[in-house]
Write a protein that binds this DNA or RNA. Structure first.
Lengths: 231, 231, 231, 231
DNA sequence: TATGAATGAGTGTTCATTCAT
DNA sequence: TATGAATGAACACTCATTCAT
């Protein structure tokens, strides 16, 4: 087990500038008030922490590395988070919430149920599978047992909501005659299972055998809704 | 985050006895040769290590706790394993191999493909889901990225084999007309996905909402093979 | 070992008001000039620092707590003191000097030597024993070895002067026949010893066993001057 | 404030040898069993810790320095003590108890009360004043408020016992007519005050003005018992 | 002048690994 | 072979001090 902060996608210094610049076209830090700066720093810490936690897991991540990657001093982390544990917990919340928000902002329920589900899957594909957010899911699976509060939060905010939404869709599909298998409504997990598998696969086995997640999800939907005649 | 070695499957007391005996009968090791004793110790260490690694993850597990749980001295571990990392790696091999062996020892290919798959699923249910072995799968998902060699091993010995076997079954099912959906053969992952989800669910969310894995798998097979006429 | 700033004599709220006011009345500082304000701030810092140093000792005291208690920002302390060490040193001077001044302002040398000594003891009782100043003495005893300059200062300004004054009184008492024991003049420490013990006792053991310092000092003086016939 | 481990009276290496040698005249470590070695190490740690705590106080003492001075690794300290605080507390107990034992082993109560008191004072002079033990008393005065358990222990084991013993002696003296001042029995502190002052003086002001503690105590006893006719 | 966010050296504590017994 | 005391590198967290505002 080597111990390098791993390649930072964006070097700290560069990123500070990037952030500052993103506000104004100047070189100075004109438009950023005290509060803004603080928020930026916090965001930088959250980003860095996510990278490191994903790469090494909670216990093996060093705050030193997070600080270095975020381009702040070690002490600065403690201005934003009580300790390593609560940083991890808040981090998960911070990152998960907007994803959930975006995913649950379903497109207008026009068209067939299959269209709805496909829209959702497409969103999921873009927003989660193969992204940092996907890795975060794997991280939660990994650390869940040691962070009951995280597992609870994840179950409450993501899993149970997702299950409910899926069940609603399935029932709609059954009512409309798009789905034959009535029992499916009891196990919405079946509907999402391949998507979850895709997430984990990309994290673990992408380099052994790439997986065309989009196509796989299509095949799975064919299984549930019947193969599309045209397409 | 608490820090207790958790209930030891084999109480340390056992070890006290062992000691006492070796003392009483001079040097004699009645029913077990030197080599056997060594193998027993190694097995005890492997068991203890698995418990601890599953409960805390690699980085957070203390060798002290493993030793205590195994009923050996800390130094003894180093007589069997080079270091913590290789212990983890060997441990995974040691535990995974017999499971794979047992799972791949499929019953004679009599009967329908669905029967074959169901036999397999039933085995998997009994041997993996909700067991220590299931937790081990979660552990591999968790630690995989930090242990490429483990991920490699797991992919080679379990995943790729499993995928191949599933693909063969699917193709057989298609050939025999039991499975309609031809594309399924491209993504055997779909066949296993609910089983994997069940494994993870039991590890993480069983206490939030219990999952009847067996029934879920049945529904899933209905989806693939069509609902059973009689049941 | 707990870590609470302890009850602040002057609540931080005071400071909020101060701020609010300075805001309301533009820049005006009604009843106190700039310089006065600065002096007040300095005094607040000294008071707060004394409380904290007495409660925790030099090393364990946090400037943060001093600032909070004084109702100023941490940086403000550095406008008045070079660093923590010199703050401690100046603090001792600042607090000690007026006490010495008041104590040495002996009442007119009328009456017997015993009356003089009693007046002095009475003063000491009121000004030192069981007060913050008494705790400061204990603090000096505690930190003396690590702050030679403080020990030096204390010896020079308090101890040696006190010893001289006591010796003078003793010699006067011997000359006037009030004190029998001639050798006492060699060890004026004996005269003050019970007073010092009282100071320390109140700091450390008051809650185990209260001590009537006044009565003890009276008994001690009886020992030196002989018991009072009347009274 | 400089930060040097201060001069170790006996350098670590030398001392380990000395200890080992004290057992046999050889160079090896023949006579020291595992347990003996452990006890020696613990003693070395206690000694080193006492030096450092006395020199710097609790908070400012670094475990690194204690370890270095004791000639052990930092981790070794934690084999003997739970943490810094309990090390300090146990240290005080460890050092105080034998002193109390020796001091309370009074010589046979033959002769006058004054003889008894003088014997006691002489013991105290030899065992405490101007020794490490004396410094320890100052340390307790210094840290008492932050270590209630230490203050409690000290009060219980040393102060209250000492006060009782002194009171008994005083009452005996009064009964035998050696002591005139009856009230003295209410304040045995007066009897010990100069001894305590001597302890503190040696710690703080010895270099400013040396104090002949023995002579001072003699003068003080003269005050209480009357001057000795012959001397 | 006053602030308090930011810094980073410093320290108590843990724990994988070694090795004398 | 087995032990567990000893080691010391590593790491989370603190806090005196600085400095942009």
């Amino acid at each position: 087990m080597t111990r390098k902060p791993a390649k930072a996608a964006t070097p700290p210094a560069a990123r500070a500038n990037a952030k500052a610049n993103s506000h104004a076209g100047e070189d100075a830090v004109p438009a950023s008030s005290r509060a803004t700066r603080a928020a930026e720093r916090r965001a930088a810490i959250v980003d860095a922490a996510m990278e490191e936690f994903i790469a090494r897991g909670f216990a093996a991540t060093r705050l030193d590395d997070i600080a270095k990657r975020a381009g702040v001093a070690k002490g600065t982390i403690y201005l934003h988070f009580k300790d390593k544990e609560s940083m991890f917990e808040e981090l998960v919340r911070t990152v998960i919430v907007p994803v959930v928000t975006r995913l649950t902002a379903l497109p207008p329920p026009a068209g067939s149920v299959r269209d709805l589900v496909e829209a959702f899957a497409s969103n999921f594909l873009k927003e989660v599978i193969g992204t940092r957010r996907g890795d975060l899911v794997r991280l939660i699976v990994a650390e869940g047992p040691r962070f009951p509060s995280v597992a609870d939060f994840y179950y409450r905010e993501v899993v149970s909501r997702g299950i409910s939404a899926m069940r609603a869709l399935i029932e709609l599909g059954i009512a409309r005659g798009e789905i034959r298998q009535k029992n499916l409504a009891h196990y919405p997990q079946i509907l999402v299972a391949p998507a979850m598998i895709a997430v984990i696969w990309q994290s673990l086995f992408a380099r052994h055998a790439p997986l065309d997640a989009q196509d796989m999800l299509r095949v799975h939907l064919d299984l549930i809704f019947g193969e599309r005649s045209t397409t």
